[in-house]
């Protein structure tokens, strides 16, 4: 078992508040780990720090055997990390197909030529000439896009050439996941993939994430819907006010008094918290 992600003593402060406070977290290959916690606990901030969109004040992130702390997000993506966004960040004017193809950006030959002016200039020339290998590559990727979209049944395939801005909310969330899968990530970070979805859609998403897990995809998931978390996770990490307050198998965490306290003691009781409270009692 190799450790894929190793976060140690990570800290991020915003003015007065410490959004992420000395968080340690390790994920081994093939594992399914969930992060839960009340609103404002620092979960998304932690994802931002891991994926390179934000820099920590202190602490380190190791990914696939390398220290990637403070590295730009594009470099981290190139090492095999993909993430989705809590509020959805699809490319509105790109079609579904193009959105997913961007997920495969780092796997394109021309895009991997070093970022020196020369590599970039060659990429430009290749784009204009479009040599055979590039056309073949694009064709392969195109087939791959169809395969990935196939996972979502007929939710996305019929809309493959529609611009993302014309999709329903749930479909945009699905496009995000499809785009992340196109990166062939070693580690997939999902930030509340079922946020804003109705029950049917949530059940569908749960089945889909379960399927990804069965295929051996390593996943780090942020989620408020606890039945999903409890059923799929190998391990659950609970955050509150930037601090990790509990960690362990779902059954153990569920009954941890600190967790119940954190959820109950919080002023904003949401659906997720009620589930914990109900299950605990």
């Amino acid at each position: 078992m190799t450790t894929l992600l190793d976060v140690s003593a990570l800290v991020r402060r915003f003015g007065g508040i410490t959004a992420v406070n000395k968080i340690d977290l390790a994920v081994t290959a093939g594992e399914f780990v969930s992060i839960i916690g009340p609103n404002g606990a620092g979960k998304t901030t932690l994802f931002n720090l891991i994926s390179g969109l934000d820099r920590p004040d202190s602490g380190t992130v190791q990914f696939a055997g390398e220290t990637v702390t403070g590295l730009a997000p594009d470099h981290i993506a190139a090492r095999g990390l993909a993430r989705t966004f809590q509020h959805g960040r699809v490319f509105a004017n790109l079609t579904v197909r193009e959105n997913v193809l961007i997920g495969a950006h780092t796997r394109q030959r021309a895009a991997r030529w070093p970022a020196l002016p020369i590599g970039a200039a060659l990429e430009f020339v290749a784009a204009l000439i479009r040599p055979t290998w590039m056309r073949d590559e694009q064709e392969l990727l195109d087939q791959e896009v169809r395969d990935i979209l196939g996972i979502f049944g007929d939710r996305l395939l019929p809309r493959i050439d529609d611009p993302a801005h014309s999709l329903s909310y749930a479909n945009r969330r699905r496009v995000e996941i499809a785009r992340a899968l196109a990166l062939k990530p070693k580690l997939l970070l999902l930030d509340e993939p079922t946020a804003g979805m109705n029950q049917t859609e949530t059940a569908e998403m749960k089945a889909l994430i379960g399927e990804l897990k069965r295929r051996g995809q390593t996943i780090l998931l942020i989620e408020h819907k606890l039945d999903l978390v409890m059923q799929l996770s190998d391990r659950v990490v609970v955050m509150d006010d930037g601090i990790k307050i509990a960690e362990g198998p779902p059954q153990v965490v569920r009954h941890d008094p600190a967790v119940i306290e954190a959820y109950l003691g919080h002023p904003t009781l949401g659906a997720a918290e009620k589930v914990v409270a109900a299950e605990a009692s």
Partner: peptide
């Protein structure tokens, strides 16, 4: 495609490996 992705959302573009 890459250029249009940067235009639409440069944060998402960077997250997917685009410099």
């Amino acid at each position: 495609r890459t250029l249009r992705a940067i235009r639409d959302d440069d944060v998402a573009a960077r997250t997917y490996g685009i410099n």
